[in-house]
């Protein structure tokens, strides 16, 4: 494990833990951006710079902003201040999460993973990605486009004010 990876992992985990424990929703969303930045760095480190930038673009700039606006729109001061941020069955939730984590760890350590890494001449280029998308994955691309359109229209309809 290299130092760089450890630092980046620390950033990601800090963000993640922060978003789990911070009391105010806005703070949580902000710490979510930290996680995304960390992840984007990891992607770049893993020779996928386009995805890293895409992540920053989509999540940090679009999704997070969206979430922040939602927080703004659903602001409810009493809950934020008076009530505990955790729901009632939180212990059970922690146990479930813990057991899933334990199972995953166990599997990772048991798995026969090849430690070696194939060297790449250059990081994955946008050009080659685009070629694959336009040739082999053109149908999924179309489907995804349709899905996004549908989701967008659905979101508008769901969030629209009731005419009545």
């Amino acid at each position: 494990m290299s130092l760089t990876f450890a630092i980046i992992a620390a950033i990601v985990l800090t963000g993640a833990i922060g978003l789990s424990v911070l009391r105010k929703t806005v703070h949580c969303v902000l710490s979510l951006t930290i996680v995304f930045f960390g992840l984007a760095m990891l992607y770049i480190r893993l020779d996928a710079p386009f995805l890293g930038f895409a992540l920053v673009l989509i999540y940090v700039s679009a999704v997070t902003i969206l979430i922040l606006f939602t927080v703004l729109l659903t602001r409810n001061r009493e809950i934020e201040t008076d009530v505990s941020p955790y729901s009632r069955g939180s212990i059970a939730g922690l146990i479930v999460g813990g057991s899933v984590f334990a199972g995953l760890i166990w599997m990772i350590y048991r798995a026969p993973l090849s430690r070696g890494i194939t060297e790449l001449e250059s990081p994955a280029s946008v050009k080659s990605l685009g070629e694959r998308l336009m040739t082999e994955y053109v149908l999924p691309l179309e489907v995804i486009a349709l899905l996004l359109t549908a989701a967008m229209i659905g979101a508008v309809i769901v969030a629209m004010k009731d005419p009545g």
Binding site: V96, V100, G103, L104, M107
Partner: peptide
Amino acid sequence: VQTYIKYVGASLALVVWVLI
């Protein structure tokens, strides 16, 4: 909704442990 997600998670853990 959280209760339901809890069941899903617990089932996932169960499946994982059974596989192990």
